[in-house]
Design a protein around this nucleic acid. Structure first.
Length: 943
RNA sequence: GCGGGUGUGAUGAAAUUGGUAGACAUGCUAGACUUAGGAUCUAGUGCUUCACGGCGUGGGGGUUCGAGUCCCUCCACCCGCACCA
């Protein structure tokens, strides 16, 4: 029987569908296990060979867990809202809803062919109203809650209003932007509009005017991580800071919990570090400095309150609100000039040139401890967004302050004596305090504690914790996303829709071009915007991260129309046991999802603090990009040269033009080249080069019939724009899905990025055919009932042990190797015994589901191999009769001696020491000791 | 600059956590069979030496009977953050 993967795949898939094999119920007497993949954005390009890497790994794990008796939830869906579909729509006129639907169907098709065990009955898409009803609902809940720092949890905004009515806000310890203290009388006297404004400062979903990353070309606001060096990540358009009223989510309220939650989850160190850095917690003190001749004071944040006696001047961010107030007439011109200078600079310029710049305001602050007058400056190195946007400058202990003071001739007072700590840097919190009044002689660490105390006692500051984490903007002026479930009443007060008014469906329209000046496309749909009762709808939409922040919960109960998921389902599935996805979501998605989860936890709607217990970041499968060198100086007649003609000296004269990999011979190897045929294809593809000449060291084309243009190869992302995409369908069509799956796993550790190499797949292909061949002789099933011998049992149990352990460790490449070794050995023994091959078949089943199912059926079994038990190993078969011990003298291997496995250490020593062979190597030297490493080696130490 | 990580044959990579480095696979070399193919099988393949042997895990040093693995130091590359007070 030949290995015909096409028919096996078809038959198996039909059987699984008929049996509903992968459908899971929300209760079971089996233990639960939730394996989740990061759901894909269904882009028009379809899948390339890199995408399924994580899905294959998670599928193997799911199948393994299922065969080990777990009730496994392993779902799939689509992150279907977002900018690319809209961009595509703008360039083609195809509605995002249509292109998204088509893309999703294509993805499902491609995914199904790879043999994944997804429960497709739980499929979701974030753009379906039945789904985003609950995205909107969670938003309304965030809107109607605030964060109570005393109870460390979200509380309803109604309970906050009650407190305001009774006592004002003096006793409220909440995460908020509310600075002013008010009494109950104040509150009760205010009108509705004023009260609504105050409440906005507390809500977890709130509006404020903020500087946003505005991209005119894309017509939208971008998140910080969508902007790189002042250029939009998508499209590469310039991005400017623009003030706009935006929705924000108060993620900063959860900063501490997001940070400490990392301690209890099984994520990689690098990922935890990224999140830790992003949250950027720093402990210090906030201190108020009075301004000479003004009522206002400047609040600064510092991690080094101990150095306060070294504070010889202050610096405000140029955008700081006090700058206008305090600048003196003398300095007005200089200050205005400097502020204008800073504003005129783009982000890129500001980052590129790190010049020391600043201006004196003319005003002075009063040092809170010794009452000296210290000058107040402004400087761009102080950022408006971090801390309070103002610093006390300590030039003796901060490099930037030092540079500033040196440039502008400001006083420097040394306050930390570091002579006891040679090698300590300026920033290290080490040394002994000097010139610091009550702190003199103290160690820095103690001085920090003491200053915080003193500052609090005297009432001009307090110990404080500061975070880098910002409340990120949640508004987008776009079409293809969730509409906010928000309207404005006749007074302009923002209100949210009730649950029974949801979903607020995205209105259908073909007019989805972004508006100018930050107006959303929805704002043009006046019928929709203006409600019957005269109220107006919010016209912004939510960012793509909204729908993906809670989707893992929806899979638990995807059809539910009453709740985002029933409490029964949520308490059964609890949380995600294993989450597999790319590290590109290290910050945005994983941070938001954890934030939403914690909020839902506060509301008692989910049973765990953290959504994702264990997370694996799969690496990328890269492609090789092939380039031709184009002479930059060639104008009318374009001139390409072969890569051997380019060297270090002339490299700058050439531009690298990526060519389609289909035109390249020996693609991906060091000797990749284009021949006449390839060049002709290239010219058809790129008619703008039809008159070009191609120069190689074996001649010139046109003219030469055997031209060999060597191409330049680089490893990089597989992408449409680099013309190096390798399609999984191609590989699956040629080798079968199981070979494809196993090869992706065999390629290397799952976390690592590596280039795709189609040639290497042959090895796995051979392995599967060889394994198949073990079951057949002359096309006839050749399984026999004979009792396996010791050697065969050992091979079997060894591989079961290794593969089980490797799957648990997520080390699939070594598991596949172990399977290959086992099959090779059994092949050598010509083993056809049922009791060996059937367990081996089960062992291979998670990796090669189609092939194993096919062989299972052909071997006369009923039902599916995937609902059988995973084989267990028996340690007793692994015990060896004898061991080959390398005998070493002073660590150098000299000869090999065989001993029975149950021999004692002493017996080995005695036997070895008597050996004639040994005498030759010792040769008169004294034996100092003998080291016997059980089952490993014997080392004789001599002198 | 700070933080995290990586460095092993021609290539992708293993190495039971301090114990025979290079498993497994690709590639390459030779051979067998052949209905000549991108099939199958066999042998070889770190460097060096005719050989015994010697040398080899980015460089240098250390601990140890023994180091890819531990310590110190330097170098290279990748990722993240980047005037974070």
């Amino acid at each position: 029987m030949k290995y015909d993967f096409k028919s096996i795949e078809q038959r198996s898939r039909k059987m699984w569908d008929d049996m509903e094999l992968y459908k899971v119920e929300n209760d079971s007497n089996k233990p639960k296990f939730y394996v989740l993949d990061m759901f894909p954005y269904p882009s028009g390009a379809g899948l390339h060979v890199g995408h399924p890497l994580g899905y294959i790994a998670s599928d193997i794990f799911s199948r393994y867990k299922r065969m080990n008796g777990f009730n496994v939830l392993h779902p799939m869906g689509y992150d279907a809202f977002g900018l690319p579909a809209e961009e595509y729509a703008l360039s083609t006129g195809i509605h995002p809803a249509d292109s998204t639907r088509e893309n999703m169907a294509r993805y499902k098709d491609q995914l199904s062919s790879l043999g994944f065990s997804f429960d497709w009955t739980r499929e979701i898409a974030t753009c379906n109203p039945g789904y985003y009803k609950w995205t909107q609902w969670i938003f309304t809940q965030l809107f109607s809650h605030y964060y109570n720092k005393t109870s460390d949890s979200a509380q309803s905004i109604d309970s906050l209003v009650e407190i305001f009515q009774a006592k004002g806000n003096a006793e409220v310890d909440a995460s908020s932007d509310q600075k002013e203290i008010f009494s109950a009388d104040d509150w009760n006297a205010w009108d509705e509009v004023r009260q609504a404004e105050i409440l906005m400062n507390y809500r977890l979903a709130y509006q404020k005017i903020g500087y946003v990353n505005w991209c005119e070309e894309l017509g939208t606001v971008l998140a910080n991580d969508q902007v790189k060096d002042g250029i939009s990540e998508r499209g590469g358009h310039p991005v400017v800071q623009k003030p706009m009223t935006q929705w924000y989510l108060r993620i900063t309220a959860y900063a501490d919990r997001l940070l400490y939650g990392l301690d209890n989850i099984d994520w990689s160190d690098s990922l935890k570090t990224i999140q830790t850095n992003w949250i950027g917690r720093s402990e210090g003190a906030s201190i108020h400095f009075k301004i000479d001749g003004h009522d206002d004071s400047i609040e600064v944040f510092t991690t080094r309150p101990d150095t306060i006696f070294g504070a010889t001047y202050m610096v405000l961010a140029p955008e700081h609100e006090l700058v206008k107030k305090i600048k003196t007439e003398d300095q007005q011109e200089e200050v205005d000039h400097y502020v204008a200078y800073v504003k005129a600079k783009t982000e890129i310029e500001r980052m590129a040139e790190k010049k020391v710049t600043g201006a004196f305001t003319g005003a002075y602050a009063i040092h809170p401890f010794n009452q000296t007058r210290i000058p107040i400056w402004i400087g761009e190195y102080v950022l408006k967004d971090y801390g309070t946007g103002a610093i006390m400058a300590v030039p003796s202990d901060d490099e930037r302050d030092h540079a500033f003071a040196t440039k502008f001739g400001l006083e420097i007072i040394n306050v930390v004596d570091k002579t006891n700590y040679p090698g300590a840097g300026m920033h290290d919190k080490l040394g002994v305090m000097i010139n610091s009044d009550f702190m003199n002689g103290m160690e820095v660490k103690d001085a920090i504690t003491l200053t915080c105390q003193k500052v609090e006692e005297k009432g001009f500051g307090k110990a404080e914790v500061n975070y880098k984490l910002r409340d990120a903007g949640f508004s987008r002026q776009r079409y293809w996303g969730e509409p906010f479930p928000v309207y404005y009443d006749e007074k302009g007060i923002a209100k949210v829709l009730d649950k029974d008014q949801l979903p607020l469906e995205l209105p259908a329209t073909d007019d989805f071009k972004p508006g100018s000046g930050g107006k959303s496309p929805l704002s043009r749909l006046t019928d929709w915007v203006e409600m019957d009762n005269g109220y107006r709808r919010e016209t912004d939409i939510m960012p793509a991260v909204a729908g993906s922040s809670w989707y893992y919960l929806r899979y638990m109960d995807p059809g539910n129309d009453e709740e985002f998921a029933s409490q029964k389902a949520v308490s059964y599935w609890q949380d995600v046991d294993l989450y597999v996805g790319g590290s590109e979501h290290a910050v945005a998605h994983l941070m938001y999802a954890r934030f939403w989860h914690k909020f839902l936890y506060d509301k008692g709607l989910v049973p765990t603090e953290e959504p994702f217990k264990k997370l694996i970041n799969q690496g990328m499968i890269q492609g090789v990009i092939e380039f031709l060198f184009l002479d930059k100086k060639s104008a009318n007649v374009k001139r390409f040269v072969s890569s051997e003609l380019v060297n270090e000296e002339n490299a700058s004269d050439f531009a690298k033009i990526p060519v389609h990999i289909d035109f390249v011979s020996e693609y991906g190897s060091k000797d990749s080249y284009m021949d006449n045929n390839g060049l002709e294809q290239f010219l058809n593809w790129r008619p703008e080069y039809k008159d070009a000449i191609f120069e190689s060291n074996n001649g010139i084309y046109p003219g030469n019939q055997d031209i060999r243009m060597t191409t330049w190869s680089e490893v990089g992302k597989m992408s449409k724009s680099k013309f190096n995409v390798i399609n999984p369908e191609e590989i699956v069509g040629r080798y079968g899905a199981d070979t494809f799956r196993m090869y992706e796993m065999f390629l290397g550790p799952i976390e690592q990025s590596k280039p795709w190499d189609t040639q290497g797949i042959e090895g796995v292909s051979k392995f599967i055919r060889r394994f198949w061949g073990l079951f057949f002789v002359n096309d006839k099933l050749s399984l026999v009932d004979e009792v396996p011998d010791k050697q065969e049992l050992k091979i079997l149990h060894q591989v079961i042990k290794k593969v089980s352990e490797d799957i648990e460790k997520f080390s699939f490449n070594t598991a596949v190797s172990a399977l290959m070794i086992a099959v090779n050995e059994l092949k050598k023994l010509n083993c056809r015994k049922k009791d060996i091959l059937i367990p081996l078949l089960k062992l291979i089943a998670p990796f090669a589901p189609y092939t194993s199912e096919g062989l299972w059926k052909l071997s006369g079994n009923e039902s599916s191999i995937h609902i059988t038990d995973f084989p267990e190993y028996d340690e007793s078969f692994l015990v060896q009769d004898s061991f080959e011990y390398p005998v070493c003298v002073n660590g150098k291997k000299r000869f090999i001696k065989s001993f029975p496995s149950d021999i004692s250490k002493d017996e080995i020593e005695n036997t070895v020491l008597d050996l004639d062979e040994l005498q030759r190597w010792i040769d008169g030297k004294t034996i100092i000791k003998t080291i016997v490493v059980p089952k490993r080696m014997i080392n004789i130490v001599v002198k």
